[in-house]
Computed example of a mutant assay.
Amino acid sequence: MQTLEKLSAQLGTLLEQKQHIMTTAESCTGGGVASAITDIAGSSAWFDRAFITYSNEAKMEMLGVSERLLNTVGAVSEPVVIEMVQGALKHSRATLGVSISGIAGPGGGSDEKPVGTVCFAWASTNGWHKVETVRFSGDRCQVRQQASYHALSEIYQYLSR
């Protein structure tokens, strides 16, 4: 597996070639994906903005996530990340986005959603979308790193087709 920095640089090249602008809506990664992207010189050509929506209130206020949905399925769920990425695209100039919500640990897990559970949604303004829940292992830092890498890797794979 390549480094997050190398992946970000390669993704930036692809985004620029395919004339996409990206946005992120992050919860458990706390801006880690946006940080990896903006570590790359010239990223302003293909990155618009990041929404770091750690609290449910932020998800509702900044991205338009439904309070009812948050109360019924919880923040770490596929329906919520779908609304997060839709909100990020709606409130940005981006053409491609990713959203992430998960349980990085060490606490907060349950039998249904153990520590390391991370939900992702990817979408583009041209109709592409993907939703996935992944269970990562390791400590808090490792879960967050793996989630950030996975978020960018899926976009890279999509654009490489």
Rank of each mutant, 00 (worst) to 15 (best):
A123R: 13
M60I: 13
Y158A: 07
I52W: 00
L70P: 08
R93Q: 15
V73T: 15
I52E: 03
M62S: 11
S66A: 12
I21P: 01
S55M: 10
T24H: 06
T29K: 03
L7W: 05
G12W: 01
T3P: 06
H20M: 10
A75T: 09
G108K: 06
L4K: 08
L89E: 09
H20T: 04
G42Q: 03
H91L: 05
L69F: 04
P79T: 11
F51G: 03
H150G: 01
E154W: 07
N126R: 12
S77P: 07
S137I: 12
G107A: 15
L4V: 12
F51S: 07
L159F: 12
L7T: 02
S43A: 15
Q86F: 01
S43W: 01
G42I: 01
C141F: 11
A58Q: 14
Q145R: 12
Q10W: 02
A104S: 13
L15S: 04
L4T: 12
K130S: 14
A9W: 01
E67W: 13
G116W: 00
C119N: 12
S43Y: 02
T24G: 05
S110N: 06
L69R: 09
G12A: 06
R135E: 11
H129K: 09
V131N: 08
S27T: 13
W46S: 00
S8L: 05
F136G: 08
L96K: 08
P79E: 09
R140V: 07
C119R: 07
G42Y: 00
G30N: 02
I40M: 04
Q142L: 14
S92L: 08
L70F: 11
T13K: 06
N71H: 14
Q19Y: 03
V118Q: 08
E112C: 05
G116D: 04
C141P: 00
S44I: 07
S99V: 12
E16T: 12
G97V: 13
V33H: 02
R144P: 01
S160T: 15
H129C: 12
L70M: 12
